[in-house]
Design a protein around this nucleic acid. Structure first.
Length: 1000
RNA sequence: GCGCCGGUAGCUCAGCUGGUUAGAGCACACGCCUGAUAAGCGUGAGGUCGGCGGUUCGAGUCCGCCCCGGCGCACCA
């Protein structure tokens, strides 16, 4: 370039309309986000949104309450972010979508922690009330912490008035649910065998169990056959044998168990009436013995126990054993053989040790066979074997503990007693064989100790009860069936959630809702002098009123709230004592549909009401572990009391894991508080990350993985910045062109934008966030940045500021920037606020979160013809790009404007090009499309043979040649259009630029 | 053990009712530009679509079996 040209270039540079914007390239999320959040608080953005959507169609995502204990980590953080994205999306769609966050505040973990601080147990002189106050304080502390953590992630909601399960109003509504269940006959109080945590000293529900591996003794025990009934076929069979006398002398039923500690409570042996059993003779330790067991298991037992001379003497069906009796090896009591369907031939001996006090199935069998329920284990898992046990077992009054069984067990923890029992069984010769067995076993989810079954009086919700109310249950179905119906009537995302929860509900037992703890809502019931339980709707109404006014502490505050005050009029004066059970925390959380959705003044009346069904929340959104937890208990309580599922949509996400796919836990150190991540990485980046992941599969969460998405964030941000940088002199109110006057390329861009709106909206409607993010990213990165914007630079920079071509591009840029901002708003909650401020135009709400979701109307619609046309043009560009790149690498050319392209085509190629226009039209159109200075046609026919031409890779019948342009370049627009200097006043400019310069 | 979901380039994901040489972005390599500049553009390499069999003219896509990962149920005596 000559000195003259250089000077000219400098001179004209100021006439080039280069992009300008204050929207920074660098996000600085760490500083920017807290500032924005403060601004949202200060301007009460959440309140503004409520006001703006007042009266609109409601769409409520009802929050599942996290537990108010510990930091909100990545998993809880993700859950809140996903909820926030959905709520923001629905809000933008125009729905009134209030979000009332909540916390689960009662329960064992907090109580446990507070008791630990007090030294393990409630100290002398400390009242339950004082403990509860400590618990409340602790819960409230964590609520504050978690609230700040959630807010730091950009989650918008009614943070000032969340719902807390400790609110008196909430508590009263939990009791109302209970009252309703009782009035409808769902509630029963009964002695049953339930999961029991001896460490927590409380009953547990299914949802409170976690299966962990442990090793237990697997023992095969001989129960001596003592007496057989009169018409006993087994007895006749043995009597018919020559060796009958010898058989009777050492005959035993062989049972198997992995819980030797339940043997003291044994009251029966169960067999299967249809299974094949055998009478076996064998030698053990030089002694000949006889036993009965299942045929199918004999071989494995004989091998394990190393029995010698094993001989099957008789083979017979289980029913033959009817009438057989045996004596308890510890206590010499007489016990029966019974039959049960659950006896299998997979493990053990086919003869099942039955202790109704310590097993669910055993309990059922015991009930059917009228067996005594023996439970010599106290609430802390220790044996008590005094008078009570003897009485329960029907041990004769003359029985003396000569062999020392009772003495040995007294006061022992059941699991500590296992080896003692095994040893003693061995000593006394009852033990045929023992070995360790490694299996998974239910553990208490909070204390991580193995649970036991223990028969106790508990409160139950009966799942198979039929509500007689014809209005709510016209077809007289069981609750279980109604639950399944309601599950089928709800929408599940992902769809397999429906199957999962259905099978759980099909198989679940009655729900034990009582707990023997302090930190919770009391089950208001009394016992009279005879131990009869007094509890009815009227009594409940009275207590509910008190609780609503004074909180559930009334039940624990003996000083201020003596029993008399807790009683309704009709019961006053009766000598009643308070029962002390509290509700399972799941009962509390499961009542939120009533306590929050129906009772909260802001939410009441905002349920979705479809047909004549009772209104319910539009969505519940939790981790998929809640199929067994919150979703299920909420369903049970809601369907039983209102007849309808508490939600229309149920969206679940998988768990957060680390890079190795392992579940996060504090001890592994692969888990961190969400606000720490926010501080280090930025809330929007974390939000973008979660939105980009398929949340139905386990979600790995590490700093590195999230940082990898920084590139996506930057690309979105810079592309948007590129759009708005070209709008510095554009005021949409004054400069927008009508849609149909836009240049084809700008119309095409809007068509692509419309396609993106379509795809993103569809994905959001299905809650497939990552599909939406991909569509957005591809649009920004490919369609906009690489294709469209690259091609529009020349016009935006070099055409006259107010020219139609430039205004056309700006119009499209503005619409796209505006649309993009809205589409990103649910995810990049903070970034879009800055975008919103930097986007020209005044006629908009103050915040992007008050804006509406783009729809395919007005500016945004598809233009299939243009889409097709530009697809072809871009295909042609790919061809020239490939050739261009090779020339660059050969150092023959630099930028595209330094080159000229020559096209050659045979009949097929001409037809292809014909779809784009006439050759004359193409020579003027293509340079801009291909980002080169000139495009020409070679009229020859046989291009294959022509020097310098090469065939296109993906377009048949087309050849191309790219050469360095011989023309002079324009110092203003860099193009070599062949007309530089034609206007003599500007010897270094092309005609276009000269006229632009003249016009300014 | 039973059931559900998944296994496509180093990473994140597309591939609809089976149909031309399996796609995108990121990352990587090599270049260009220096007027989106701690930016932008282009090109390229990279995949036995978990494995084996089957149906079919044709399978990543359908069927069967198996392997791996995740989850759920059950593991009871």
């Amino acid at each position: 370039m000559t000195e003259d040209a250089k000077a000219a270039k400098e001179r004209y540079k100021s006439t080039v309309l280069l992009p300008k914007t204050d929207f920074p390239m660098k996000a600085g999320l760490q500083e920017r986000e807290p500032a924005l959040q403060q601004h949202w608080d200060a301007t009460n953005l959440y309140g503004q949104i409520r006001k703006a959507r007042a009266g609109a169609k409601p769409w409520v995502l009802h929050d599942g309450p996290p537990y108010a204990n510990g930091d909100a980590h990545t998993g809880t953080g993700m859950n809140k972010i996903l909820k926030d994205m959905v709520v923001k999306f629905r809000t933008m769609q125009g729905y009134d979508s209030p979000y009332v966050p909540g916390w689960d505040c009662h329960g064992l973990p907090i109580e446990h922690k507070m008791l630990e601080e007090l030294g393990g147990t409630l100290p002398e002189g400390t009242t339950a009330l004082q403990l509860r106050e400590k618990c409340l304080e602790y819960a409230n502390k964590w609520i504050d912490t978690q609230r700040n953590q959630f807010k730091s992630a950009g989650v918008l909601g009614r943070w000032a008035q969340p719902y807390l399960t400790t609110n008196p109003l909430y508590e009263a509504n939990v009791l109302r649910v209970f009252r309703e269940l009782m009035a409808r006959g769902f509630i029963t109080r009964a002695k049953r065998s339930v999961h029991w945590s001896w460490a927590a000293k409380s009953a547990l529900a299914e949802a409170e169990l976690e299966y962990e591996d442990r090793t237990d003794p697997s023992v095969y025990v001989r129960f001596p056959v003592s007496s057989c009934g009169k018409d006993c076929k087994f007895r006749e069979m043995v009597e018919a044998r020559d060796d009958a006398a010898e058989v009777w002398k050492s005959l035993a039923l062989l049972i198997w168990t992995t819980t030797p500690w339940t043997l003291p409570a044994n009251v029966a042996v169960a067999a299967h009436d249809k299974a094949e059993y055998v009478l076996v003779r064998y030698t053990r330790g030089g002694k000949r013995e006889y036993m009965v067991m299942a045929e199918a298991l004999l071989k494995s037992v004989a091998e394990k126990a190393k029995l010698a001379d094993v001989q099957v003497l008789e083979t017979f069906r289980g029913e033959v054993l009817r009438g057989v009796g045996y004596s308890h090896p510890f206590l010499d009591t007489a016990c029966p053989l019974v039959f049960a369907d659950y006896v299998t031939l997979e493990d053990g001996t086919g003869l099942v040790h039955t202790a109704p006090g310590h097993g669910k199935e055993d309990f059922e069998t015991g009930k059917r066979e009228r067996l005594p329920v023996v439970c010599p284990v106290d609430e802390s898992g220790k044996f008590f074997v005094g008078e009570r046990l003897r009485k329960d077992l029907g041990v004769s009054t003359t029985f003396e503990d000569t062999r020392g069984w009772l003495k040995m067990l007294e006061g022992q923890n059941v699991f500590k007693a296992n080896p003692l029992i095994v040893n003693k069984l061995r000593e006394e010769g009852w033990l045929l064989h023992d070995e360790p067995v490694h299996h998974s076993y239910p553990h208490c989810w909070r204390t991580h100790t193995p649970v036991i079954f223990r028969a106790t009086e508990q409160w139950f919700v009966q799942v198979d009860h039929v509500d007689p109310d014809k209005t709510l249950n016209p077809q007289a179905k069981t609750l279980r069936q109604r639950l399944l119906d309601e599950i089928a009537a709800s929408r599940w995302f992902p769809a397999w959630g429906q199957k999962r929860i259905s099978s759980m509900v099909e198989n679940r037992p009655d729900w034990c809702v009582s707990r023997q703890r302090y930190w919770g809502i009391p089950i208001p019931a009394f016992a009279d002098a005879h131990g009869q339980v007094v509890c009815d709707p009227e009594l409940l109404d009275h207590v509910i009123a008190l609780v609503e006014k004074h909180g559930s502490n009334v039940w624990f505050d003996d000083a201020n709230w003596p029993v008399e005050k807790l009683l309704p009029e009709k019961l006053r004066g009766r000598k009643l004592t308070k029962l002390t059970d509290i509700f399972d925390v799941w009962f509390e959380a499961g009542s939120s549909f009533q306590a929050v959705m129906r009772a909260d003044p802001e939410l009441a009346g905002k349920g979705l009401a479809e047909g004549n069904r009772a209104p319910h929340a539009a969505m519940y959104l939790e981790g998929d572990d809640q199929h067994r937890g919150w979703f299920q208990v909420s369903l049970i309580l809601s369907v039983a009391t209102t007849g309808v599922s508490p939600f229309r949509d149920c969206l679940t996400s998988a768990f957060v894991v680390d890079e190795k796919g392992e579940k996060g836990s504090k001890s592994k150190g692969n888990i961190w508080a969400i606000d720490k991540g926010v501080k280090d990485l930025g809330a929007d980046l974390i939000r973008l990350y979660f939105a980009s992941m398929n949340t139905s599969e386990p979600i790995p969460v590490t700093y590195k993985l999230i940082q990898n998405h920084g590139e996506t964030y930057r690309k979105l941000r810079n592309t948007w910045r590129g759009l708005v940088g070209n709008l510095f002199d554009f005021d949409p109110a004054r400069h927008m062109l009508p849609r149909n006057e836009l240049l084809p390329i700008d119309q095409w861009a809007l068509s692509q934008c419309a396609a993106t709106v379509e795809a993103v909206t569809a994905a959001w409607e299905r809650y497939e966030f990552h599909v939406a993010m991909r569509a957005l990213h591809d649009f920004a990165n490919v369609t906009l940045s690489a294709q469209y914007m690259d091609l529009r630079k020349d016009s935006l920079y070099c055409d006259a500021a107010t020219s139609k071509q430039r205004r056309s591009a700006q119009t499209a840029y503005w619409v796209i920037a505006d649309t993009l901002t809205r589409l990103l708003a649910p995810v990049l909650a903070h970034t879009v606020e800055d975008m919103w401020q930097h986007l020209p135009g005044k006629d908009r709400p103050a915040s992007a979160h008050l804006a509406h979701w783009p729809t395919l109307q007005g500016w945004l619609h598809r233009e299939p013809a243009l889409d097709e046309r530009f697809e072809l043009l871009l295909k042609l560009k790919a061809e020239t790009d490939r050739v261009l790149d090779r020339l660059r690498k050969e150092k023959k050319v630099g930028k595209g404007y330094d080159t000229a392209v020559s096209l050659g085509a045979n009949a097929e190629g001409l037809e292809w090009l014909g779809k784009l226009g006439t050759p004359e039209h193409l020579t003027s159109l293509l340079p801009e499309m291909l980002n080169v200075s000139a495009v020409g046609f070679d009229p020859s026919t046989d291009h294959a043979a022509l020097q310098g031409y090469e065939p296109a890779a993906d377009i048949r019948g087309l050849w191309l040649k790219v050469t360095e342009s011989a023309e002079q370049d324009c110092v203003r627009c860099f193009r070599r259009t062949g007309d530089v200097g034609r206007i003599t006043a500007h010897p270094h400019l092309c005609t276009r630029c000269a006229s632009v310069v003249e016009g300014t």
